[in-house]
């Protein structure tokens, strides 16, 4: 009836998997070519359709911006990701989005920036690492702390040498092997190794909920304000734009008010870390 043609928000853009990179056991990066370009910001997410199987939210792991090519790093955890992991280059998928707010650049630029990743949580953080490397003058002192279960589980193993030019990097694993020379233990054990101005610095944490919970708590105890501790929440984002209610966390829709929140916003909400 109305003159303007509204777009059906559920309709995805078709895409082809052009290449698949094995990052770690059960973690692969799918390089996609989309039929139409999309533009995403660091920390935003998309909904990926595995045709006939399901649809699930993921954060791209390639350079933010506009384009037809995006990478998504995905861990095999459930039905849709299980089928995805069996797919070969050439397979068809579909994407809609991007959705959500992304990392708040106004809160993290021009400060010491502590990027803290756990396991596959490094995938969304990779877009932030690109942001830092593209805008070096805005990030006076970036640090990257990364924790993983095993050395084999570490993502983007070849990229760390590039990142070392710009970042102070510390890594730890829970279960080291014989070659592992770096730290042992959970990611918070790395906090002893760094010196930051807790009155000024900002921290971005992405990883399993329990890791984010304890890392944020520890940072707050170190004196960093919960307003400068940023987390990316994972809830059941089904629609992606606030119309299905599955991702409600307190009064927040994780899909549109998030997925990126300050620790201050979410720390007291029941179920936040479950």
């Amino acid at each position: 009836m109305s003159a303007e043609k509204l777009k059906n928000p559920y309709n995805p853009i078709k895409a082809t998997i052009v290449n698949i990179i094995v990052n770690a056991p059960d973690i692969k990066t799918f390089k996609l070519e989309l039929e139409e370009p999309i533009e995403f910001a660091t920390g935003q997410f998309i909904q990926l359709t595995v045709p006939g199987i399901g649809e699930a939210p993921f954060t791209p792991s390639s350079k933010p911006g506009r384009g037809k090519n995006i990478d998504i790093t995905i861990m095999k955890v459930g039905v849709a990701t299980g089928v995805l992991h069996k797919m070969k280059a050439g397979a068809k998928v579909a994407i809609r989005g991007p959705y959500g707010n992304g990392f708040p650049l106004d809160k993290i630029r021009d400060r010491e920036l502590l990027i803290i990743g756990g396991g596959v949580g490094l995938a969304p953080l990779r877009t932030l690492i690109y942001e830092v490397m593209e805008n070096k003058e805005r990030y006076p002192r970036p640090l990257l702390l990364y924790g993983c279960k095993t050395p084999e589980g570490i993502l983007y193993k070849d990229s760390f040498s590039d990142w070392e030019e710009d970042f102070e990097i510390h890594r730890t694993v829970d279960n080291p092997n014989e070659e592992w020379q770096e730290c042992k233990g959970v990611v918070t054990t790395l906090f002893d190794k760094i010196k930051v101005d807790t009155d000024e610095c900002a921290a971005v944490i992405v990883g399993p909920p329990v890791m984010m919970k304890f890392a944020a708590l520890e940072l707050e105890n170190m004196g960093i304000s919960p307003e400068r501790i940023i987390v990316s929440m994972e809830k059941n984002m089904t629609c992606g734009f606030g119309k299905c209610r599955h991702c409600l966390l307190g009064d927040y829709y994780v899909c549109k008010d998030g997925p990126v929140f300050t620790y201050k916003q979410v720390k007291g909400i029941p179920g936040a870390w479950d």
Binding site: A56, V77, G78, V79, A80, T81, P209, E234, K235, N236, H246, C247, L248, L249, P270, G271, A272, D274
Partner: peptide, 10 residues
């Protein structure tokens, strides 16, 4: 209802 792919459930 609110369970995520990895199994976590608030």
């Amino acid at each position: 209802y609110a369970r995520v792919g990895g199994g976590a459930n608030p």
